[in-house]
């Protein structure tokens, strides 16, 4: 799980062009000014590529915070 967060942090920094972004389980789109719907898609695409996983539309719409995303990645990697 720690490794998942480390890699997620890299991806978030890259997608939001922000080196200081702190990626925690509680983080949501409301906390990041630039996190609009387009950036959300770019984030999902970058996560899929970075972790070599694919999400279904239902899985994506079920995400509420970074914790959900990390959990989903964990489950896919098992």
């Amino acid at each position: 799980m720690v490794q998942v967060y480390e890699k997620l942090t890299e991806i978030f920094q890259d997608v939001f062009d922000d080196e200081d972004i702190a990626v925690t389980a509680e983080l949501t789109a409301d906390d990041v000014a630039e996190w609009d719907s387009l950036r959300h898609i770019q984030l999902i695409l970058a996560v899929q590529k970075g972790f070599k996983v694919k999400f279904s539309a239902a899985e994506i719409s079920g995400l509420h915070n970074v914790g959900d995303l990390a959990g989903l990645i964990e489950a896919k990697l098992k």
Binding site: V15, Q42, L45, A46, K49
Partner: peptide, 8 residues
Amino acid sequence: LDENQLSR
């Protein structure tokens, strides 16, 4: 560059 790097 891949799609993420291009967008960046």
